[in-house]
């Protein structure tokens, strides 16, 4: 199996894994604080390499997420496209941030994502969500270093395996 194909497989399996994590049941108390896994994985791959994630990829992943678990077709597609766009735009800066600064940037991205979601929800006539709605981005930013290190490790192992 050549290198390119291996990388593609790893990329898509992490994406599928993030979609599964999105569906994973958690205790009631923690439901509102579940980080938005697909966005985290997407941010990682966008930061690491421009080859993996173009806007279209983000859009397609979002569409898949919508089909699995969405209230409107195109909702997560739009949100993930925005996330990918912002990361691509600021990629050269984000890549060289220390970890805590990167976490803050991820927090800003996720908060922005929540704002967009809120807007879409109110357009389609949903009631305003409770305050805990804003908790998830903070959890997302808190787990970001671990996601980053884990995926980095996977990639490093892959490279060592190939060498």
């Amino acid at each position: 199996m050549n290198r390119q194909r291996m990388r593609t497989i790893v990329f898509w399996s992490t994406v599928v894994l993030s979609l599964l994590l999105m569906l994973l049941p958690v205790p009631d108390v923690l439901v509102a604080f579940k980080p938005y896994w697909p966005a985290l994985v997407l941010i990682y791959w966008t930061l690491e390499s421009v080859d993996y994630v173009k806007l279209g990829t983000a859009f397609a992943i979002g569409l898949a997420a919508d089909v699995i678990d969405g209230f409107l077709l195109g909702d997560q597609a739009l949100r993930l496209a925005v996330v990918a766009f912002l990361v691509i735009r600021f990629r050269s800066r984000l890549r060289f941030f220390p970890m805590w600064q990167q976490s803050l940037a991820v927090l800003a991205l996720l908060l922005n994502d929540r704002v967009i979601e809120l807007a879409l929800r109110s357009f389609s006539g949903f009631a305003l969500p409770p305050l805990t709605f804003w908790g998830a981005p903070f959890v997302g930013a808190a787990v970001w270093p671990f996601v980053f290190l884990l995926l980095d490790d996977v990639r490093a192992r892959l490279r060592a395996h190939e060498a």
Partner: peptide
């Protein structure tokens, strides 16, 4: 892409495509 997503959302809202 934003326009595409918006079109999809409006269509879905109207026609329950999802």
């Amino acid at each position: 892409y934003l326009a595409l997503a918006s079109v999809l959302m409006v269509l879905d809202h109207r026609g329950h495509w999802l």
